[in-house]
Protein backbone atom coordinates (compact mmCIF):
# COMPACT_ATOMS: atom_id res chain seq x y z
CA UNK A 1 0.00 0.00 0.00
CA UNK A 2 1.43 3.39 -0.99
CA UNK A 3 1.29 6.50 1.13
CA UNK A 4 -0.89 8.28 -1.41
CA UNK A 5 -3.86 6.07 -0.53
CA UNK A 6 -5.29 8.05 2.33
CA UNK A 7 -7.20 5.94 4.82
CA UNK A 8 -9.09 7.03 7.88
CA UNK A 9 -6.88 5.99 10.80
CA UNK A 10 -9.62 4.42 12.91
CA UNK A 11 -10.72 1.92 10.27
CA UNK A 12 -8.92 -1.41 10.02
CA UNK A 13 -6.87 -2.04 6.92
CA UNK A 14 -9.70 -3.49 4.89
CA UNK A 15 -8.12 -2.74 1.59
CA UNK A 16 -10.84 -2.40 -1.04
CA UNK A 17 -8.42 -4.19 -3.37
CA UNK A 18 -9.29 -7.50 -1.71
CA UNK A 19 -12.37 -9.00 -3.29
CA UNK A 20 -14.81 -10.86 -1.03
CA UNK A 21 -14.06 -14.08 -2.88
CA UNK A 22 -10.37 -13.56 -2.23
CA UNK A 23 -11.19 -12.82 1.40
CA UNK A 24 -13.06 -16.11 1.82
CA UNK A 25 -10.21 -18.00 0.17
CA UNK A 26 -7.64 -16.29 2.39
CA UNK A 27 -9.54 -17.29 5.52
CA UNK A 28 -9.29 -20.98 4.70
CA UNK A 29 -5.75 -21.00 3.31
CA UNK A 30 -3.13 -22.70 5.47
CA UNK A 31 -0.72 -20.17 6.89
CA UNK A 32 2.95 -20.88 7.38
CA UNK A 33 2.57 -20.22 11.11
CA UNK A 34 0.15 -23.13 11.33
CA UNK A 35 3.09 -25.51 10.88
CA UNK A 36 4.54 -24.24 14.16
CA UNK A 37 2.58 -26.37 16.66
CA UNK A 38 3.36 -29.53 14.70
CA UNK A 39 7.04 -28.68 14.41
CA UNK A 40 7.09 -28.05 18.16
CA UNK A 41 5.24 -31.29 18.86
CA UNK A 42 7.58 -33.38 16.69
CA UNK A 43 10.69 -31.55 17.97
CA UNK A 44 9.62 -32.02 21.58
CA UNK A 45 10.03 -35.75 21.14
CA UNK A 46 13.81 -35.32 20.91
CA UNK A 47 14.21 -32.17 23.02
CA UNK A 48 12.20 -33.38 26.03
CA UNK A 49 12.53 -37.18 25.99
CA UNK A 50 11.77 -37.33 29.71
CA UNK A 51 8.51 -35.44 29.39
CA UNK A 52 6.70 -37.56 26.83
CA UNK A 53 4.15 -38.82 29.34
CA UNK A 54 3.29 -35.23 30.21
CA UNK A 55 3.35 -34.42 26.49
CA UNK A 56 0.85 -37.17 25.81
CA UNK A 57 -1.47 -35.77 28.49
CA UNK A 58 -1.11 -32.34 26.88
CA UNK A 59 -2.10 -33.74 23.51
CA UNK A 60 -5.13 -35.45 25.05
CA UNK A 61 -6.08 -32.17 26.71
CA UNK A 62 -5.76 -30.36 23.38
CA UNK A 63 -8.12 -32.85 21.73
CA UNK A 64 -10.58 -32.44 24.60
CA UNK A 65 -10.33 -28.64 24.45
CA UNK A 66 -10.82 -28.67 20.67
CA UNK A 67 -14.03 -30.61 21.16
CA UNK A 68 -15.27 -28.02 23.62
CA UNK A 69 -14.21 -25.16 21.36
CA UNK A 70 -16.49 -26.49 18.62
CA UNK A 71 -19.57 -26.02 20.79
CA UNK A 72 -18.45 -23.21 23.11
CA UNK A 73 -16.31 -21.12 20.80
CA UNK A 74 -18.20 -21.57 17.57
CA UNK A 75 -21.81 -22.44 18.39
CA UNK A 76 -21.90 -20.54 21.70
CA UNK A 77 -23.09 -23.53 23.77
CA UNK A 78 -21.70 -23.09 27.29
CA UNK A 79 -21.19 -26.48 28.91
CA UNK A 80 -19.97 -27.15 32.42
CA UNK A 81 -20.35 -30.89 31.99
CA UNK A 82 -18.21 -31.78 29.01
CA UNK A 83 -16.26 -34.32 31.09
CA UNK A 84 -19.34 -36.54 30.77
CA UNK A 85 -18.31 -37.45 27.22
CA UNK A 86 -14.60 -37.65 28.03
CA UNK A 87 -15.58 -40.07 30.79
CA UNK A 88 -17.91 -42.14 28.63
CA UNK A 89 -15.13 -42.48 26.06
CA UNK A 90 -12.62 -43.49 28.74
CA UNK A 91 -14.91 -46.01 30.41
CA UNK A 92 -16.05 -47.49 27.09
CA UNK A 93 -12.50 -48.23 26.00
CA UNK A 94 -11.53 -49.33 29.51
CA UNK A 95 -14.48 -51.64 30.04
CA UNK A 96 -14.12 -53.20 26.57
CA UNK A 97 -10.58 -54.14 27.48
CA UNK A 98 -10.96 -55.03 31.16
CA UNK A 99 -14.21 -57.00 30.84
CA UNK A 100 -14.30 -58.23 27.26
CA UNK A 101 -10.65 -58.47 26.32
CA UNK A 102 -11.17 -56.03 23.44
CA UNK A 103 -7.58 -54.79 23.49
CA UNK A 104 -7.07 -53.59 19.94
CA UNK A 105 -6.30 -49.87 20.33
CA UNK A 106 -7.69 -48.29 17.15
CA UNK A 107 -11.09 -49.99 17.32
CA UNK A 108 -11.14 -49.35 21.07
CA UNK A 109 -10.57 -45.67 20.36
CA UNK A 110 -13.31 -45.60 17.75
CA UNK A 111 -15.74 -47.30 20.11
CA UNK A 112 -14.97 -44.73 22.80
CA UNK A 113 -15.81 -41.94 20.40
CA UNK A 114 -18.93 -43.60 19.04
CA UNK A 115 -20.46 -44.42 22.43
CA UNK A 116 -19.72 -40.86 23.62
CA UNK A 117 -21.42 -39.62 20.44
CA UNK A 118 -24.53 -41.71 21.16
CA UNK A 119 -24.68 -40.18 24.65
CA UNK A 120 -24.10 -36.78 23.09
CA UNK A 121 -26.98 -37.25 20.68
CA UNK A 122 -29.40 -38.40 23.39
CA UNK A 123 -28.58 -35.60 25.82
CA UNK A 124 -28.05 -32.94 23.17
CA UNK A 125 -31.43 -33.61 21.60
CA UNK A 126 -33.10 -32.82 24.91
CA UNK A 127 -30.74 -30.22 26.40
CA UNK A 128 -30.25 -28.00 23.38
CA UNK A 129 -33.86 -26.83 23.50
CA UNK A 130 -32.74 -24.74 26.47
CA UNK A 131 -30.52 -21.67 26.56
CA UNK A 132 -28.36 -19.66 28.89
CA UNK A 133 -28.31 -20.55 32.55
CA UNK A 134 -30.77 -23.43 32.19
CA UNK A 135 -28.54 -25.06 29.59
CA UNK A 136 -25.42 -24.61 31.75
CA UNK A 137 -27.20 -26.23 34.69
CA UNK A 138 -28.47 -29.11 32.56
CA UNK A 139 -25.00 -29.90 31.21
CA UNK A 140 -23.67 -29.80 34.76
CA UNK A 141 -26.48 -32.01 36.06
CA UNK A 142 -25.96 -34.55 33.27
CA UNK A 143 -22.31 -34.99 34.14
CA UNK A 144 -23.06 -35.26 37.87
CA UNK A 145 -25.63 -37.97 37.20
CA UNK A 146 -23.20 -39.89 35.02
CA UNK A 147 -20.54 -39.59 37.72
CA UNK A 148 -22.88 -41.03 40.35
CA UNK A 149 -24.02 -43.73 37.97
CA UNK A 150 -20.41 -44.78 37.34
CA UNK A 151 -19.85 -44.78 41.10
CA UNK A 152 -22.79 -47.13 41.70
CA UNK A 153 -22.07 -49.41 38.73
CA UNK A 154 -19.03 -50.71 40.57
CA UNK A 155 -19.15 -54.11 38.89
CA UNK A 156 -18.41 -52.49 35.57
CA UNK A 157 -16.43 -49.39 36.45
CA UNK A 158 -14.60 -50.43 39.61
CA UNK A 159 -16.42 -47.57 41.33
CA UNK A 160 -14.30 -45.41 43.55
CA UNK A 161 -11.28 -47.72 43.30
CA UNK A 162 -11.09 -47.28 39.57
CA UNK A 163 -11.10 -49.66 36.63
CA UNK A 164 -8.08 -51.93 36.63
CA UNK A 165 -6.98 -54.62 34.24
CA UNK A 166 -6.85 -52.60 31.04
CA UNK A 167 -4.34 -54.00 28.60
CA UNK A 168 -3.82 -52.51 25.18
CA UNK A 169 -2.37 -54.42 22.25
CA UNK A 170 0.48 -52.97 20.21
CA UNK A 171 -0.72 -50.25 17.84
CA UNK A 172 -1.13 -51.63 14.31
CA UNK A 173 0.07 -54.84 15.96
CA UNK A 174 3.61 -53.44 15.86
CA UNK A 175 4.25 -50.56 18.27
CA UNK A 176 4.23 -51.67 21.87
CA UNK A 177 3.60 -49.41 24.82
CA UNK A 178 6.84 -48.42 26.53
CA UNK A 179 7.84 -46.98 29.87
CA UNK A 180 8.85 -43.60 28.46
CA UNK A 181 5.57 -43.14 26.65
CA UNK A 182 7.16 -42.82 23.20
CA UNK A 183 4.56 -44.95 21.48
CA UNK A 184 1.59 -43.18 23.00
CA UNK A 185 3.10 -39.80 22.32
CA UNK A 186 3.19 -40.52 18.58
CA UNK A 187 -0.15 -42.30 18.64
CA UNK A 188 -1.88 -39.39 20.43
CA UNK A 189 -0.21 -36.85 18.19
CA UNK A 190 -1.44 -38.74 15.14
CA UNK A 191 -5.00 -38.77 16.50
CA UNK A 192 -4.75 -35.07 17.35
CA UNK A 193 -3.62 -34.30 13.82
CA UNK A 194 -6.58 -36.13 12.27
CA UNK A 195 -9.03 -34.55 14.72
CA UNK A 196 -7.57 -31.13 14.04
CA UNK A 197 -7.88 -31.52 10.27
CA UNK A 198 -11.54 -32.43 10.70
CA UNK A 199 -12.24 -29.59 13.15
CA UNK A 200 -10.54 -27.08 10.88
CA UNK A 201 -12.64 -28.15 7.91
CA UNK A 202 -15.85 -27.97 9.95
CA UNK A 203 -15.05 -24.52 11.29
CA UNK A 204 -14.40 -23.06 7.85
CA UNK A 205 -17.37 -24.74 6.15
CA UNK A 206 -20.76 -23.21 5.43
CA UNK A 207 -22.04 -25.28 8.35
CA UNK A 208 -19.36 -23.71 10.54
CA UNK A 209 -20.38 -20.22 9.43
CA UNK A 210 -23.95 -21.14 10.33
CA UNK A 211 -22.80 -22.11 13.83
CA UNK A 212 -21.17 -18.72 14.25
CA UNK A 213 -24.45 -17.24 13.07
CA UNK A 214 -26.28 -19.11 15.85
CA UNK A 215 -23.71 -17.88 18.37
CA UNK A 216 -23.99 -14.30 17.17
CA UNK A 217 -27.76 -14.13 16.76
CA UNK A 218 -30.03 -17.14 17.17
CA UNK A 219 -33.16 -15.09 16.54
CA UNK A 220 -31.88 -14.00 13.15
CA UNK A 221 -30.86 -17.55 12.23
CA UNK A 222 -34.45 -18.68 12.81
CA UNK A 223 -35.62 -15.76 10.68
CA UNK A 224 -33.48 -16.84 7.72
CA UNK A 225 -34.95 -20.31 7.83
CA UNK A 226 -32.06 -22.13 9.50
CA UNK A 227 -32.90 -25.35 11.40
CA UNK A 228 -31.15 -24.15 14.55
CA UNK A 229 -31.86 -27.09 16.83
CA UNK A 230 -30.76 -29.61 14.23
CA UNK A 231 -27.52 -27.70 13.68
CA UNK A 232 -26.81 -27.52 17.40
CA UNK A 233 -27.44 -31.23 17.89
CA UNK A 234 -25.17 -32.02 14.93
CA UNK A 235 -22.22 -30.05 16.28
CA UNK A 236 -22.88 -31.39 19.78
CA UNK A 237 -22.63 -34.97 18.52
CA UNK A 238 -19.41 -34.19 16.60
CA UNK A 239 -17.99 -32.50 19.69
CA UNK A 240 -18.91 -35.36 22.01
CA UNK A 241 -17.38 -37.92 19.65
CA UNK A 242 -14.11 -36.01 19.77
CA UNK A 243 -14.35 -35.69 23.57
CA UNK A 244 -14.87 -39.47 23.61
CA UNK A 245 -11.69 -39.93 21.56
CA UNK A 246 -9.79 -37.85 24.11
CA UNK A 247 -11.18 -39.97 26.95
CA UNK A 248 -10.39 -43.20 25.12
CA UNK A 249 -6.80 -42.07 24.52
CA UNK A 250 -6.57 -41.20 28.19
CA UNK A 251 -7.73 -44.69 29.21
CA UNK A 252 -5.34 -46.36 26.78
CA UNK A 253 -2.31 -44.26 27.68
CA UNK A 254 -2.73 -44.63 31.44
CA UNK A 255 -4.28 -48.13 31.37
CA UNK A 256 -6.38 -47.03 34.32
CA UNK A 257 -9.71 -45.19 34.62
CA UNK A 258 -11.04 -43.57 37.76
CA UNK A 259 -14.20 -41.58 38.44
CA UNK A 260 -12.04 -38.49 37.98
CA UNK A 261 -12.61 -38.73 34.22
CA UNK A 262 -16.26 -37.75 34.80
CA UNK A 263 -15.60 -35.18 37.50
CA UNK A 264 -16.81 -31.61 37.62
CA UNK A 265 -13.22 -30.52 38.04
CA UNK A 266 -12.33 -32.01 34.65
CA UNK A 267 -15.27 -30.17 33.06
CA UNK A 268 -14.10 -26.97 34.69
CA UNK A 269 -10.49 -27.53 33.71
CA UNK A 270 -11.24 -27.76 30.01
CA UNK A 271 -13.23 -24.52 30.15
CA UNK A 272 -10.29 -22.84 31.92
CA UNK A 273 -7.90 -24.22 29.30
CA UNK A 274 -9.97 -22.75 26.51
CA UNK A 275 -10.37 -19.36 28.17
CA UNK A 276 -6.61 -19.24 28.82
CA UNK A 277 -5.78 -20.01 25.23
CA UNK A 278 -8.61 -18.16 23.54
CA UNK A 279 -12.17 -19.27 22.77
CA UNK A 280 -13.30 -19.87 19.18
CA UNK A 281 -9.90 -19.63 17.53
CA UNK A 282 -8.76 -23.22 16.83
CA UNK A 283 -5.22 -22.85 18.20
CA UNK A 284 -6.49 -21.49 21.53
CA UNK A 285 -6.93 -25.12 22.59
CA UNK A 286 -3.23 -25.75 21.89
CA UNK A 287 -1.89 -22.71 23.75
CA UNK A 288 -4.31 -23.15 26.65
CA UNK A 289 -3.55 -26.84 27.18
CA UNK A 290 0.21 -26.35 27.05
CA UNK A 291 0.20 -23.35 29.39
CA UNK A 292 -2.23 -25.01 31.79
CA UNK A 293 -0.26 -28.23 32.06
CA UNK A 294 3.06 -26.47 32.41
CA UNK A 295 1.61 -24.35 35.21
CA UNK A 296 0.14 -27.45 36.85
CA UNK A 297 3.37 -29.41 36.51
CA UNK A 298 5.68 -26.66 37.71
CA UNK A 299 3.55 -25.18 40.48
CA UNK A 300 2.46 -28.52 41.92
CA UNK A 301 6.12 -29.42 42.19
CA UNK A 302 6.80 -26.26 44.18
CA UNK A 303 3.71 -26.63 46.36
CA UNK A 304 1.42 -29.66 45.98
CA UNK A 305 -1.25 -28.07 48.20
CA UNK A 306 -1.14 -24.52 47.03
CA UNK A 307 -0.54 -24.73 43.26
CA UNK A 308 -4.11 -24.00 42.26
CA UNK A 309 -3.75 -20.55 43.79
CA UNK A 310 -1.15 -19.81 41.13
CA UNK A 311 -3.47 -21.14 38.45
CA UNK A 312 -6.25 -18.92 39.75
CA UNK A 313 -3.97 -15.91 39.67
CA UNK A 314 -2.95 -16.55 36.06
CA UNK A 315 -6.59 -17.00 35.08
CA UNK A 316 -7.59 -13.74 36.75
CA UNK A 317 -4.84 -11.88 34.93
CA UNK A 318 -5.75 -13.40 31.57
CA UNK A 319 -9.44 -12.65 31.95
CA UNK A 320 -8.75 -9.10 33.13
CA UNK A 321 -6.13 -8.11 30.60
CA UNK A 322 -6.46 -10.54 27.68
CA UNK A 323 -10.15 -10.98 27.12
CA UNK A 324 -9.53 -12.89 23.94
CA UNK A 325 -7.12 -15.31 25.61
CA UNK A 326 -3.36 -15.62 25.25
CA UNK A 327 -3.63 -16.41 21.55
CA UNK A 328 -5.85 -13.38 20.98
CA UNK A 329 -3.35 -11.23 22.87
CA UNK A 330 -0.50 -12.62 20.75
CA UNK A 331 -2.43 -11.84 17.57
CA UNK A 332 -3.08 -8.29 18.74
CA UNK A 333 0.60 -7.84 19.55
CA UNK A 334 1.60 -9.15 16.11
CA UNK A 335 -0.82 -6.76 14.46
CA UNK A 336 0.63 -3.86 16.43
CA UNK A 337 4.20 -4.78 15.50
CA UNK A 338 3.24 -5.07 11.82
CA UNK A 339 1.29 -1.84 11.98
CA UNK A 340 4.28 -0.02 13.46
CA UNK A 341 6.70 -1.30 10.86
CA UNK A 342 4.63 -0.47 7.77
Amino acid sequence: MTMSEVQPPSLPTNSPKVSPTQYMHDRVRWRLSEALPWIVAVGAFWVFPNYLVLGTQMIIMIIFALSLDLILGYAGIVSLGHAAYFGVGAYTTGILSAHFGWNEPLSGLLMGGMVAGVFGFASGWLLLRYHGLALIMLTLATSIMLYEFANVAEVWTGGFDGLLGITIDPIFGIFESDLWGKTYYWYSLFVLFLVFLAVRRIVYSAFGRGLVGIRENTKRMHAIGSPVHQRLVTIYVISTIIAGFAGALFAQSTAYVTLDVLSFSRSGTVVIVLILGGVGRLYGAFIGSIIYMIIEDELSRISPEFWEFGLGLVLVLVVMFFRRGLLGAAEDAMKRIRGASS
Binding site: V28, I202, S205, F207, I224
Partner: peptide, 30 residues
Protein backbone atom coordinates in the same frame (compact mmCIF):
# COMPACT_ATOMS: atom_id res chain seq x y z
CA UNK B 1 -30.82 -8.59 14.42
CA UNK B 2 -27.40 -8.87 12.82
CA UNK B 3 -24.34 -11.07 13.09
CA UNK B 4 -22.16 -8.48 14.78
CA UNK B 5 -18.98 -10.54 14.77
CA UNK B 6 -19.00 -11.06 10.99
CA UNK B 7 -18.29 -8.78 8.07
CA UNK B 8 -21.10 -7.13 6.12
CA UNK B 9 -20.85 -9.51 3.18
CA UNK B 10 -20.75 -12.54 5.47
CA UNK B 11 -24.00 -11.37 7.06
CA UNK B 12 -25.68 -11.41 3.68
CA UNK B 13 -23.86 -14.50 2.39
CA UNK B 14 -24.98 -16.46 5.44
CA UNK B 15 -28.59 -15.73 4.60
CA UNK B 16 -28.11 -16.79 0.98
CA UNK B 17 -26.15 -19.85 2.04
CA UNK B 18 -29.00 -20.92 4.34
CA UNK B 19 -31.58 -20.36 1.60
CA UNK B 20 -29.58 -22.57 -0.73
CA UNK B 21 -29.26 -25.23 1.99
CA UNK B 22 -25.47 -25.01 2.02
CA UNK B 23 -25.59 -24.92 5.79
CA UNK B 24 -25.65 -28.71 5.96
CA UNK B 25 -22.27 -28.99 4.27
CA UNK B 26 -19.68 -29.25 7.02
CA UNK B 27 -16.77 -30.25 4.83
CA UNK B 28 -16.23 -27.87 1.89
CA UNK B 29 -14.77 -24.42 2.57
CA UNK B 30 -17.60 -21.93 2.84
Amino acid sequence: QLFKGLTVIENVALSISERRMHGHDFWSPA
